[in-house]
Simulated assay, not measured.
Amino acid sequence: MRNTLPMKPSVTPARGAIAVRRAVARDAKRLTRLVRGSRAYQGQYAAMVAGYRVGPDYIEAHRVFVAVDTGDPAHPVVGFYSLVLTPPELDLLFVADGTQGRGVGRLLVAHMKSEARAAGLDRVHVVSHPPSEGFYRSVGALPTGTAAANPPAVAWDRPELEFPIP
Rank of each mutant, 00 (worst) to 15 (best):
R39T: 03
V154F: 04
V49G: 11
P88W: 08
P151R: 06
P130L: 00
T32W: 04
Q100P: 13
A14D: 13
R21H: 02
G120T: 07
Y136M: 03
A17Q: 14
G16H: 07
V24T: 15
M112P: 00
Q42M: 09
G101L: 06
G37A: 11
V20I: 15
A96G: 14
Q44M: 10
L107I: 08
G105M: 10
V54H: 06
P152A: 01
S132H: 12
R30F: 05
A153L: 10
I59A: 08
T4Q: 11
P87E: 09
R117Y: 10
P159V: 01
Y81R: 03
R102Y: 13
T12S: 08
D69M: 03
D72G: 12
P166S: 05
G16L: 06
N3P: 10
Q44I: 09
R21C: 11
H111Y: 06
F65L: 11
I59F: 05
Y136T: 07
L83E: 01
Y52C: 14
V127R: 08
W156E: 06
V154N: 00
A61V: 01
D157K: 01
F163E: 08
G16N: 05
Y58A: 13
V154D: 07
P152I: 01
P166Q: 09
A19P: 04
S114H: 07
Y52K: 15
Y45M: 03
R137A: 10
T32R: 08
R53I: 12
F163T: 11
S128T: 07
M1P: 11
V24D: 03
P13G: 15
P87N: 05
E89N: 06
R15E: 10
D122S: 15
L5I: 10
G51H: 05
G71E: 00
S138H: 15
Y136R: 05
T99Q: 12
A74S: 13
E162L: 10
S132P: 12
A119L: 03
R39H: 14
A147H: 13
Q42R: 09
E162F: 02
P131Y: 02
G120Q: 10
E115A: 11
V127H: 03
V127F: 12
D91L: 04
L34Y: 02
V66L: 00
V104G: 14
P87R: 04
A119F: 04
I18P: 08
L90M: 08
E133I: 03
P76L: 06
A155K: 05
H62W: 01
G134Y: 00
R21S: 11
G103N: 09
S132D: 12
P87W: 02
F65E: 13
P159K: 02
F94D: 06
R158A: 08
E133R: 13
V104I: 14
R22W: 05
V77E: 15
V54Q: 04
R36T: 09
G145V: 01
G98F: 10
D72P: 03
S114T: 15
F135Y: 13
T86E: 07
L121P: 12
P159D: 04
V20L: 15
P88T: 12
G71Q: 05
L90H: 02
K8S: 14
G120V: 13
V11T: 03
A17Y: 04
P56T: 00
I165N: 07
V126T: 01
R158V: 00
V109R: 04
K113Q: 15
V11R: 00
R39E: 15
L31I: 11
A67K: 03
A96Y: 11
A47L: 05
A17L: 11
K29R: 15
F80R: 02
V64Y: 00
